[in-house]
Design a protein around this nucleic acid. Structure first.
Lengths: 152, 152
DNA sequence: TTTTTTGTGGGGGAATGTGGGGAATTAAAT
DNA sequence: ATTTAATTCCCCACATTCCCCCACAAAAAA
């Protein structure tokens, strides 16, 4: 499976099109290079891009864990799914992101792709810088989480 | 598993390419000599090079300990992963390191590979000299650390 | 010395990233 | 219904960067 890492700058053009970095596109499985699923992140001002396969697995996971006849569960499902949409990748390797989503993440021009292993986050560049932890905080909290076991 | 030790000088050429010392390359497991993972060290002005296997184990460890649905956890994951990237080793045994990372470690020309057992650190040569502890400090602090274990 | 391995440098072609024109589609306005 | 505007989508044209390849220097081994 693909392992997306790193962060790559990109620019949205006037039409709201954004080039998917080739290094990411190449990691998409054969036959999954036509489109992605995009979803608004509920916690942060960013969009999450899922390869089809990853998205499908996520959906399957939902179906398994959520009860079809439980209305709370269905509300959760609906809300999760409703903030998502398919993104077609054009012949140049770009995706068109609708204005409203770009606005939601505060993206003007400069955006940033950030690898998150099985998926990709898309941030407004400035917003990402702001929400990064200071390296001290980061190191401390990560160490706590990982139980001080050889993380670094 | 490989055990990288020692320190080896090298030069970045005008294009930012750096030769991986043969002695290190030979220690990479068969089938892991095509590429490495590079990551900015959060604490020091150096880059860490991971053999694929070591990196993969680290990632697996993360997935295990961090919760996909916890936003704090995901932020940590993102920050860890975002400063990393794949480095392809070319047919000459070199890696191309992007300008921005070279700048971040203040590397002009002279760099230094420093073995760190399962991984390799890459420093600007001068920067490394500066951040070394004096041998007095070093001996003292090391002694403290190693004493603690058996005492308390 | 000769041969092999290790390290250095650069040229050129393909791939990547950027822009814009203009159908086709949808939505709002007259 | 017709016009106008806005959005979506497909196509082509370029500039730039990257990366593959080859050639060779330098060092080590034979």
């Amino acid at each position: 499976m693909a392992t997306f890492i790193g962060n790559i700058e990109a620019k949205a053009d006037v039409k709201g099109r954004i080039f998917i970095p080739a290094s990411y596109r190449k990691q998409l499985p054969e036959g999954e290079r036509e489109r992605l699923v995009m979803r608004m992140d509920p916690n942060n001002a960013c969009l999450i891009l899922y390869p089809e396969g990853v998205w499908n697995r996520k959906v399957a996971d939902f179906k398994e864990k959520l009860d079809e006849w439980n209305s709370d569960d269905q509300m959760l499902l609906m809300q999760f799914v409703s903030d998502a949409e398919w993104l077609d990748i054009d012949s140049q390797g770009r995706v068109l992101i609708s204005k409203r989503y770009l606005q939601q993440i505060g993206a003007s021009q400069e955006v940033l792709f950030v690898g998150m292993l099985d998926r990709i986050a898309l941030w407004d560049k400035a917003a990402y810088e702001r929400s990064r932890l200071s390296s001290n905080d980061f190191a401390k909290r990560l160490a706590e989480k990982m139980m001080k076991k050889s993380v670094d």
